[in-house]
């Protein structure tokens, strides 16, 4: 595949840009990618390319440049209380200053995260064992409730009853763990 910018060198950088819901395929050689400011790290770890693209990606969306046209919001710059990073700073470097930034910027962040992760917004993977005790319980309860609805719809009432008991057990454990001062 040939670079779409210079039509000379072979394309080395391939990615899909999504701007306002519209998908565009981009194929660039390293030189043109650099010139376009979409630096591609060839020697870094996989995915680094994407980190470097992030700032570029974010700036493309006009809704991020001017969060609001209302004069009331002009003075307001969101800043993380813990690490003092501001949202414009984050846009520039593409990295957060601390874990709490995620909470501070959550409203601005949601569309960004969706765009980066194929529309996904919620973690669906591993939960750390030690700090995730109550999270585990809640997930288990959720799953059981789903099973309960299914057995009821299949009219398997005996099974439904035993699932309900199990849910009660777990709920007891959950409230106990909260009272335990976590």
């Amino acid at each position: 595949m040939i670079c779409q910018e210079c039509n000379q060198r072979p394309a080395a950088l391939h990615f899909t840009k999504i701007v306002n819901g519209e998908k565009t395929e981009v194929h660039l050689c390293e030189k043109c990618a650099q010139e376009k400011g979409e630096m591609f790290m060839f020697n870094g770890e996989a995915g680094l390319s994407f980190n470097n693209l992030l700032a570029g990606l974010l700036n493309i969306d006009p809704s991020f440049k001017q969060p609001s046209q209302s004069p009331f919001h002009q003075e307001e710059i969101l800043q993380c209380q813990h690490c003092s990073m501001t949202f414009p700073q984050f846009l520039k470097v593409g990295r957060f200053g601390c874990a709490r930034c995620y909470e501070t910027f959550q409203d601005q962040l949601k569309p960004v995260i969706r765009r980066l992760h194929g529309g996904n917004w919620a973690h669906n993977g591993k939960i750390p064992k030690r700090i995730g005790g109550s999270i585990h319980l809640r997930k288990q309860i959720e799953e059981l409730k789903h099973n309960l609805r299914e057995s009821i719809s299949r009219e398997e009432f005996e099974q439904a009853a035993s699932i309900r008991d199990e849910i009660r057990q777990l709920e007891k454990r959950l409230s106990a763990s909260h009272e335990g001062g976590e």
Partner: peptide, 27 residues
């Protein structure tokens, strides 16, 4: 994880410096 306190969010998973890695942090 038994010995260290990770930055983990119930909703977003493992919190990473760059949002391209958030969630599983897995490459």
């Amino acid at each position: 994880e038994q010995h260290l306190q990770y930055a983990f969010d119930e909703k977003l998973g493992y919190l990473t410096s760059c949002p391209t890695n958030v969630g599983t942090g897995l490459r």
